[in-house]
């Protein structure tokens, strides 16, 4: 009905002009460049061979396989840590009252606004064996954080930290505690209440948060670049490989890996768009 009303019904020339401008803007800024990635992956410049076969070869050569493996490993641990931590801290923030709760909930959002480079620098300053605060201690027990996989996991976990929490907290607030209290009054203990009442209630928000985290984790670049050696077979994740190969004039490999990353992001985006309405109706 809102659309038949006077003020919103009018489709003047201004509307059409704006529509065309918006479409043109998005086409030039996003649609065209993104679609060119596929073109570059299959029809690379110079002496590199084009077509699907060489594309697959570039993706399956050992260096690339190592990079994807490392990326998946790091993303897996970062997602796992952030999911457990995220659910826990969300429950604490919503269900309990304690000193400093509000400060904590503000601080939780901080990682989203910190430059990835600063994240990397911060981790180096705290944990590198050469100059970190805890470097000496870590070295003495023979545990390397910086320039090894734990550092990559930490950097990735840092930048994705708020993503799960931001999705769950509003849902937890919305569902309230009635069902949990009912379950307790029926004799369920804390663990049973969590697994059978609370978790199902936040299920979709959690899945949504996990997908966002995974997408971000697979694509993290800046923070990872600082805390990793970033050399082939030595801490080179997929995103670092894109940079290295492009800088070393192996555009074909760079675009091949980039295409895979683009496809992963777009799949994540579609999954997330598909999940969104489900989560809105509790």
């Amino acid at each position: 009905m809102a659309d038949s009303t006077y003020t919103r019904r009018r489709r003047g020339p201004v509307t059409v002009v704006l529509r065309v401008l918006v479409i043109a803007y998005l086409f030039m800024l996003v649609i065209w460049p993104v679609s060119l990635v596929a073109d570059r992956a299959f029809r690379p410049a110079g002496l590199a061979e084009g077509g699907f076969g060489p594309f697959l070869e570039r993706l399956t050569e050992p260096g690339t396989v190592y990079a994807f493996n490392l990326t998946l490993t790091v993303a897996f641990w970062a997602v796992l840590i952030n999911t457990v931590f995220g659910v826990g801290i969300s429950l604490l923030l919503v269900r309990y009252r304690f000193w400093g709760r509000r400060t904590l909930s503000v601080l939780i959002d901080l990682p989203l606004s910190v430059s990835p480079v600063v994240v990397g620098l911060a981790l180096v300053l705290a944990y590198s064996s050469a100059r970190g605060w805890f470097g000496g201690f870590l070295e003495s027990i023979g545990f390397a954080v910086i320039f090894s996989t734990p550092g990559l996991v930490m950097a990735t976990a840092f930048v994705c930290l708020p993503l799960v929490i931001r999705e769950i907290v509003p849902v937890l607030e919305e569902v309230g505690t009635d069902a949990e209290e009912a379950a307790r009054s029926l004799g369920a203990n804390g663990r049973q209440t969590f697994w059978r009442i609370t978790l199902p209630a936040i299920k979709w928000a959690l899945v949504y948060g996990v997908v966002l985290t995974a997408a971000r984790a697979l694509g993290e670049f800046g923070a990872v670049k600082i805390v990793s050696q970033g050399a082939e077979f030595n801490g080179e994740t997929a995103t670092l490989l894109v940079e290295n190969r492009y800088s070393n004039f192996d555009e074909a490999s760079a675009y091949a890996v980039a295409l895979v990353l683009v496809l992963i992001s777009i799949i994540a985006l579609v999954v997330v768009t598909y999940l969104r309405p489900k989560e809105d109706r509790p």
């Binding site: 704006l18 479409i23 997408a215 995103t239 675009y255 683009v262 768009t273």
Partner: peptide, 30 residues
């Protein structure tokens, strides 16, 4: 506004969020 393809634009808007930043750079370079 209402037009065909609006839903596609909705997804396009989020693409820059979803892409890894290094890939975003590469995308623009293409």
């Amino acid at each position: 506004d209402q037009f065909i393809g609006k839903r596609l634009l909705e997804v396009v808007i989020d693409v820059p969020f979803a892409l890894p930043t290094i890939v975003a750079g590469l995308v623009l370079l293409s």
